[in-house]
């Protein structure tokens, strides 16, 4: 019984976000390097791993083509029960989440699109298109 309740709660929490299950890309992002990928409706959102090389602030960035109306960048960085998210700038289609990271700690980075949100009548918007994602260490005072 408890298991059923837990499963229902887990299911409900997924629906609150309105996303499909993530597709694990098995890509570990590295500071300063850019990974190109594509979002398709069939694959939902894409999940990456980032292991901080040093402690400090990093800017996790995602950028889609500016003229591609089917993909507006939308990022989430997850550290256990904490997460940070942001949507892309409408002019640049660059999404940036600045996070303080701890050396050696592992973070999940999830790339998706505002277009993957659930519409008021329960319909799904489609997410489709190329984007690039990277982690940029910041030298903040």
């Amino acid at each position: 019984m408890a298991g059923l309740v837990f499963a229902w709660l887990a299911h409900a929490s997924v629906h609150q976000d309105g996303y499909d299950d993530p597709t694990d890309t098995h890509v570990t992002l590295v500071d300063g390097l850019w990974h190109d990928d594509t979002l398709t409706p069939e694959h939902g959102w894409n999940r990456y791993t980032y292991v901080a090389a040093s402690s400090g602030y990093v800017a996790v960035q995602m950028r889609g083509p500016r003229d591609e109306a089917t993909l507006w960048s939308y990022l989430r960085v997850v550290d256990g029960s904490h997460s940070w998210a942001a949507v892309g700038n409408r002019k640049t289609n660059v999404c940036e989440v600045i996070v303080h990271v701890v050396r050696g700690h592992r973070y999940e980075v999830i790339a998706t699109s505002q277009r993957s949100a659930t519409l008021p009548r329960g319909e799904r918007q489609t997410t489709e298109g190329a984007y690039t994602i990277g982690v940029v260490p910041l030298d903040l005072p």
Partner: peptide
């Protein structure tokens, strides 16, 4: 090339 044409490796 990566970064949607803005980076080179």
């Amino acid at each position: 090339s990566s970064g949607l044409g803005t980076a080179w490796n």
